[in-house]
Design a protein around this nucleic acid. Structure first.
Lengths: 306, 306
DNA sequence: CAATCCAATAGGAGAAAGCTATCAAATGCG
DNA sequence: CGCATTTGATAGCTTTCTCCTATTGGATTG
């Protein structure tokens, strides 16, 4: 690819020193080598760039113009190297993160402070999608990493973030709302459960719970957001099935809200930061996961006691 | 100089095709060569740029960023080549022209039309200086070329433009002002001659004329411009010695002005476009001189008749 | 299970870029 | 004037880089 970066560098050295010999010394090269490269450059471009005389070297108008441009180009190459160096040690640039809508809005705000401190050059691009779409888009390269349930994503590596548990939320006048501690599956027997629409991971889990508890998932009221489900529940439409992060963060905000932990292995799900097993970002993503883990621990500390 | 332009090109090809093999075909290179160069680039920068998988290649965030920058850099190299190509055939960019103050203001305006048509990319930077300064600054590289008298500039090549002759200009009531044709040196005998200050070529010539004609050069009234000399002459201070271009162009404008050609070999001087004999612009400057020659011929056509 | 596809690896050939030594011209100094 | 110095160009040789063909290894597909 002519002219070469090296040739440009040599030409600039001549512009700066005014002599072939000094220019060669400046760039740590022998004078004949530099002469040859400059001659090569002139031949390749078909223009005289340097005027040789006994008193040294002087640039032609064309040479001056090319030096001006070459300086810009070399500086941009340096910038490129600097950017790469930043990216070497830490995450930087745009990282496309896919996240479950039952997690993202509650976990990420908690983590932003830490993230900014730990990865100042990182620009997160976040998108909420259903589990099934997360997987497809991760494999297609539209996401660099996702926050989801590892078992739904083949050919991936992951770092565990936290274990999500489920909560039941009933209307105030409901019998379920009277107690305080965890409830058993049997307590849900015969009830109508409210959950998100199809394709969401939460929906699949709710189906399992319903089957195990002898309950039914409401087909009429499939919510499009957790807030919608909670509101429907408050209006008497049924028992809302809510995941940890939402339940705890909303419960903290709304003291009147009555939630009860469902105490059963089926109502647990591991949440992890997940990436393609071919991704070279693995090590960086591990430290990202540490930040996220810390944030989730803080959000879930009430759960540990309860 | 790492990374190389070629390496950047290869990385871009991967970004565009999504596969090493296709990228190699795109840039007319074997797949192993491209693989090696990209690997070299990654090693040199210390960052993973490409995520390899069985389904092809995918860029990391760092890779995307570098591709963005590399595209800019490659385009600027193309621009540089294009600029060089323009400069190859014709004069272009800034050409620093030094010119005698007795010539520049009269010759150059006449030539501008032709110059623009012939060298559209040329930006003339003109500076008027005394002969002695022209020479010094030409040698020092502050000028690419000058318009002057060849015999005053050693180590130069030149292209003849025209032969300048001298005119005598006397006050209206003067005896010299009565005739019309050329005058002989004897007509100046005993007169006081007006000319430019020291260091100007015209001054030296006027000294010669004075010596040969038995005249004196006024030491009191050394003009700083030809207009000043002419005015002083009109006020009765002496006989102004004026060169062709000024005399003819002003005579054309001011019909009442009386000028008479001095008919003697000593009152001639060759004017040429001059450049260092080491200048690679020689051929281009020859075509520049053709334009200037044409302009001067037009200005001097009255002289040919008279 | 064979066929196919993709990237990495191996080994060798050619080009490119480097170096030392030398030359030719010109300048500078005694 | 003459000799030492400085300048860029040239010559010859060595090293490094770049590329190519051929092959391997792993994974996907019919």
């Amino acid at each position: 690819m002519r002219p070469t970066l090296r040739q440009m560098q040599y030409l600039i050295a001549i512009a700066e020193t005014g002599k072939f010999g000094d220019a060669a010394r400046l760039v740590n090269v022998s004078q004949p080598s530099l002469s040859a490269q400059v001659a090569e450059m002139e031949a390749g471009l078909g223009v005289a760039l340097v005027e040789r005389s006994r008193r040294g070297a002087m640039l032609t108008p064309a040479g001056e113009e090319l030096v001006r441009r070459a300086r810009i180009i070399l500086r941009e190459v340096e910038d490129l190297k600097a950017v790469a160096k930043l990216g070497r040690t830490e995450l930087s640039g745009r990282l496309r993160l896919g996240v479950l809508p039952t997690i993202g809005p509650y976990l990420l705000p908690q983590a932003t402070g830490d993230l900014r401190a730990r990865f100042p050059a990182l620009r997160l691009s976040v998108r909420e999608e259903r589990t099934i779409d997360l997987d497809e888009h991760l494999q297609a390269g539209l996401f660099d990493t996702v926050i989801s349930t590892p078992e739904d994503h083949p050919d991936t590596e992951y770092a565990h973030l936290f274990t999500e548990r489920l909560y039941a939320c009933a209307p105030p006048e409901d019998a379920l709302a009277e107690g305080d501690g965890p409830i058993q599956l049997e307590h849900l027997s015969g009830r109508e459960l409210l959950t998100l629409g199809e394709g969401h991971r939460l929906s699949a889990i709710a189906q399992n719970i319903a089957a195990a508890a002898g309950a039914a998932v409401s087909s009429e009221y499939e919510g499009t957001s957790l807030d919608a489900i909670r509101l429907m529940s408050q209006m008497g439409a049924g028992v809302a099935i809510l995941p940890s992060l939402y339940a705890l963060s909303e419960a903290r905000r709304d003291r009147g809200m009555n939630i009860r932990l469902i105490d059963h292995p089926i109502a647990r799900r591991d949440i992890a930061l997940i990436w393609r097993d071919t991704s070279p970002l693995a090590t960086s993503l591990h430290s990202l996961s540490a930040c996220l883990q810390k944030a989730s621990a803080k959000l879930l500390e009430r759960e540990a006691k309860g």
